[in-house]
Amino acid sequence: MNCPVCGAEHFSVPGGGKAAPAGERLCPYQGVPYTGLRAGHDQIYFGRWRRIDASTIDLRRAYHQLERLLNGIAVALETEDIPAARSDLGKAVEALHTAGPGEDGPEALRYLDHALSYAHRVIGDLLHEKGLPPHSPADFAGWYDAGEVPFREDW
């Protein structure tokens, strides 16, 4: 089920244990700037499509999630004057289209991965304009089934 706060699919308690006590909405992105973009990013970052046993459906899902994320980023950029971020968003869209919907195989995976990296950089630019450090998915890993996602020390 999607989180009512951030819209992403994440556990309702870190570690994925029992559901949160009734009435308590637990979302790690609550109150942080760019809640939706961060959460949208992380559900892809920790998504099933990156696993060895990912199915075509997982990939198609990642594609559409990325499409939504890039649309959300485009909206956020409309009111900001960050040319470098606009250019990166363009590259993200290009990578996504090169990957194509419903494609699988290592090429498609690689382009989806590129698109996600560009998206991450743009979110970083947005945060930087507000004087904030970049978004670090590792800080939110406990809220996802992240066991098999290879650790990327870049982020």
Binding site: I82, P83, A84, G124, H128, P133, P134
Partner: peptide, 18 residues
């Protein structure tokens, strides 16, 4: 390792675009 280098590179990218 506190993100300062990356923030500085963002600044220079911004100025370079401008």
């Amino acid at each position: 390792h506190l993100g300062l280098g990356t923030a500085m590179i963002r600044e220079i990218r911004h100025l370079g675009e401008k």
